[in-house]
Write a protein that binds this DNA or RNA. Structure first.
Lengths: 181, 181
DNA sequence: CCCAACATGTAATCTGTTACATGATTGC
DNA sequence: GCAATCATGTAACAGATTACATGTTGGG
């Protein structure tokens, strides 16, 4: 039915927050889930059509209206519960930074250090961003029933960023010295 | 030429460690790079053929031998250096655990706690594994020129695992209480 | 009136995985 | 002799991205 149960999960999940248009759903997935999830544009529309056909979402405003709002149905909520309970599919790891560092002898110490400094700086920036979002969300939406769960995902980002910074610092200390000593 | 420059990088990188057969290369990618990189079987052979045609690897033992050992050439090493210096392609994030937790209100607190305990335990196991590999590698290959760089990737795993454990613990503390309070 | 943002969709393509297919070597 | 491992490859498929294609609405 839907392209993949993964996309289905994200789409139904988004609509479980509140009914919205396909366009708004895409923005929610990009802007709200974006730190740990992504769906490409071309997946969302076909998945919504499939979900509508299966009765898991209801299209409000009719097909001839300029924009249609999708809402999750009772069967859609049940489907979402099933999907969320499915075993987690870990994506194959593909960490370009670690691949480059692993072959650091070929790349050279200087370039490795540059990569590490860059990674550290980006992690630091991201950390600030997460902390800002967390503060903002706590102030504006701290009362919502979904908030405690959204908070967990932000905490994850914060912990991972702190670890990245600490790791990069440690590596930079260890990697001191010349390319050709 | 090669399926993707990413695969090319991993293949040339593997051969930069030492010449080996395609089969051995696959095992190195799976067992040594496995914690941060993956290549599927079906990519390695075509990429090797393309690299051979381009003169970046040399096939030793001839095409009619039962098994052929591939070695990286001077142009291959140059190509690897170029690839390693290319900007890092970050994969689209797809963290199934965080997606499930984000929709934790639908999934239920109990199941969220189960997911977190599981994640914590797996991170702990992995941490032990990384520490074991690091100790072993330090003892047996600590003198190799590639060792300091390999070490960095293990340190990354160790830091990330510790962060995951701490995060999961924090979440479990926060997520105490009943599903329907 | 024009531009940015809203809105919906399709088709081609790329990338990567899995399943299939085959055969040699080596230790038990 | 037989099973496991070493070894090499291809083809079909699945999943996802990108580019294309089109039209509306609202503000400056």
């Amino acid at each position: 039915m839907a392209r993949s149960s993964q996309t289905e999960m994200a789409v139904l999940g988004g609509l479980s927050l509140e009914p919205m248009t396909a366009y708004a759903l895409r923005e929610v997935i990009r802007d709200v889930l974006g730190h740990f999830w992504s769906e490409s544009f071309g997946q969302i529309y076909p998945t919504l059509h499939a979900l509508e056909e299966a009765g898991h979402v209801r299209r409000e405003g009719g097909p001839r209206a300029r924009s249609s709002v999708y809402a999750i149905t009772a069967s859609g909520l049940a489907r979402l519960r099933d999907l969320l309970a499915e075993p987690i599919q870990e994506p194959q790891p593909r960490n370009g930074l670690l691949l480059r560092l692993f072959f650091g002898r070929v790349l050279g110490r200087d370039q490795c250090r540059a990569l590490l400094r860059d990674a550290r700086d980006r992690a630091r920036d991201q950390l600030g961003e997460y902390e800002g979002i967390l503060a903002h969300l706590t102030a504006t939406e701290g009362h919502l029933p979904d908030f405690p769960f959204m908070r967990l995902t932000l905490l994850a980002g914060i912990h991972q960023c702190r670890a990245s910074v600490a790791w990069a610092e440690e590596c930079l200390t260890e990697l001191a010295g010349d390319d050709n000593p």
